[in-house]
Amino acid sequence: HMTFVALYDYVASGETDLSFKKGERLQIVNNTEGDWALAHSLTTGRTGYIPSNYVAPSD
């Protein structure tokens, strides 16, 4: 899985969403939902949907 870094803070709007903080590292599990991606946080160990425009690929 590619690793991504959060560009902004995001507060989950539902139970299936994943909250994260700017700078948090995430792995995209499934990116077939258009503007949303299923992601796993390497920081918190949690998995949920995130807005895909809130993250960018990290080196």
Rank of each mutant, 00 (worst) to 15 (best):
M2Y: 12
N30H: 12
N30Y: 14
A56L: 10
W36C: 10
E15P: 14
Y8Q: 09
N53P: 05
V55G: 05
W36M: 08
A6D: 00
T44N: 05
G45A: 03
R25M: 15
L7C: 08
A12E: 04
V55Y: 10
Y54W: 07
P51N: 05
S52G: 07
T3R: 04
S52P: 10
D9W: 03
T32H: 11
S58H: 12
L7I: 08
R25C: 14
A6C: 09
L18V: 07
P57R: 09
R46T: 05
D59G: 12
D35Q: 12
L26G: 00
S19K: 04
L26I: 10
V11K: 09
F20W: 02
Q27N: 07
V11D: 10
G23I: 03
W36D: 01
Y49K: 06
V11L: 08
F20M: 08
E33D: 13
F20H: 02
G45Y: 04
M2V: 11
T44L: 02
F20G: 02
R46K: 14
T32I: 15
L7S: 05
K22R: 09
K22T: 06
N30W: 13
W36S: 03
L38H: 04
I28Q: 01
G45L: 05
Y49H: 06
V55L: 11
E24N: 01
R46M: 12
V29P: 06
V11S: 08
A56F: 11
D17T: 09
T3I: 15
W36G: 03
S58W: 15
T43Y: 06
I50A: 02
L18W: 03
G14P: 02
D59P: 13
Y54P: 03
A56I: 14
N53R: 13
I28D: 00
A39C: 04
T44G: 02
K21R: 10
E24F: 02
S52C: 15
V55N: 05
A12G: 13
T44Y: 02
T44I: 01
N31E: 10
H40E: 07
K21N: 08
N53G: 13
A56E: 11
T32F: 15
I28T: 03
Y8C: 10
F4C: 08
T44E: 03
V5W: 05
Y49A: 03
T3Q: 08
G48V: 01
M2H: 13
K22D: 02
D9K: 01
S13L: 11
R46A: 09
L18A: 06
T16I: 08
P57E: 09
G45E: 03
H40P: 00
H1F: 13
D59Y: 13
D9V: 02
Y49F: 11
M2K: 12
Y54K: 05
G48Q: 02
N30A: 14
L42N: 04
D17H: 14
W36V: 06
Y10Q: 01
A6W: 00
Y54H: 09
Y49M: 10
V29R: 07
R25W: 14
F20Y: 03
L18E: 03
F20P: 00
F20E: 00
I28M: 08
T16K: 13
T47Q: 07
K21F: 08
T16D: 12
T43S: 10
V5H: 05
S13W: 09
I28N: 00
S58I: 15
A39I: 05
P57C: 11
A12S: 08
L38F: 11
P57F: 11
V55S: 04
E24Q: 02
K21P: 01
H1L: 13
R46H: 09
F4V: 14
I50H: 01
I50G: 00
I28V: 08
L26N: 01
L42Q: 07
G23E: 02
P51V: 01
V11I: 12
T43C: 12
Y54E: 02
L18K: 02
Q27R: 12
E24H: 03
G45R: 03
D9P: 04
D59E: 12
H40W: 08
F20R: 15
D17F: 15
H1D: 10
D9T: 06
N31V: 14
T16A: 11
D9H: 03
P51Y: 03
S41D: 03
T16S: 13
D35F: 12
D9S: 06
T32K: 10
S58P: 09
Y8K: 08
S19D: 06
G14C: 15
F20L: 06
A39L: 01
S13A: 12
Y8M: 10
D59A: 11
K22E: 06
K22Q: 08
K22Y: 04
A6L: 05
F4T: 05
S19C: 05
F4Y: 14
D17N: 09
N31S: 12
L26Q: 00
L7Q: 07
L18F: 09
Q27V: 15
P57Y: 11
S41E: 01
A37N: 07
N30T: 14
S19M: 07
S19R: 05
P57G: 08
A6T: 06
G34T: 08
T16P: 05
E33F: 14
K21S: 10
S19Y: 04
L7K: 07
T43F: 06
I28F: 07
N30E: 13
S52R: 15
V5K: 03
A39F: 05
V5D: 03
E15R: 08
D9M: 02
T3F: 12
F20I: 11
D17P: 03
T3V: 15
G45K: 05
Y8R: 09
S19N: 05
V5F: 07
T44K: 01
N31L: 14
L18S: 03
S19V: 06
E15A: 11
H1A: 12
L38R: 03
D59R: 07
R46C: 10
S41R: 01
G14Q: 10
Y10S: 01
V29W: 13
D59I: 13
P57A: 11
G34I: 05
D17W: 10
V11N: 10
T32Y: 14
D35G: 15
N31G: 14
H1K: 09
W36E: 03
L38D: 01
V5I: 14
N53M: 11
Y8I: 06
G23F: 03
P57I: 12
L42M: 09
F4I: 05
A12I: 03
E15I: 10
T47S: 09
F4Q: 04
N53C: 12
V29N: 07
A12K: 04
N31D: 11
A37K: 13
A6V: 11
A56V: 14
G45S: 03
F20S: 00
G48N: 01
Y10R: 04
Y10F: 07
G14V: 09
R25H: 13
L26M: 07
L42Y: 06
L18N: 03
I50P: 00
K21M: 09
T47E: 08
W36Y: 08
G23R: 00
A37P: 09
S52D: 04
S52E: 05
G45V: 01
G34P: 07
D59S: 12
T47P: 01
A56Y: 11
G34Q: 06
D35M: 12
Y54S: 10
K21H: 09
Y54I: 08
D9E: 06
P51K: 05
Q27W: 14
D35I: 12
A56P: 12
D59F: 12
N53T: 11
Y10I: 02
Q27T: 12
H1M: 13
G14L: 09
S41V: 02
E15L: 11
V11Y: 10
M2A: 10
G23W: 04
N30L: 13
E24Y: 05
A56C: 12
G45F: 05
V55E: 03
L18G: 02
E24M: 02
V11A: 08
E24L: 00
D17L: 10
H40Q: 10
W36N: 03
D9A: 04
T32E: 10
A37L: 15
K22V: 07
G48H: 03
P57T: 09
Q27H: 12
V29T: 07
N53Q: 10
L42K: 04
S13H: 11
A12W: 02
K21I: 08
G23M: 01
D17Y: 14
P51M: 05
A56S: 10
F20D: 00
H40L: 14
P51E: 01
V5Q: 04
G23Y: 04
G48F: 05
A56K: 11
K22I: 06
G34A: 07
E33S: 13
F20T: 02
G45D: 05
Y10H: 06
V55T: 05
E15Q: 11
N53W: 14
D35Y: 13
I28A: 02
T32A: 12
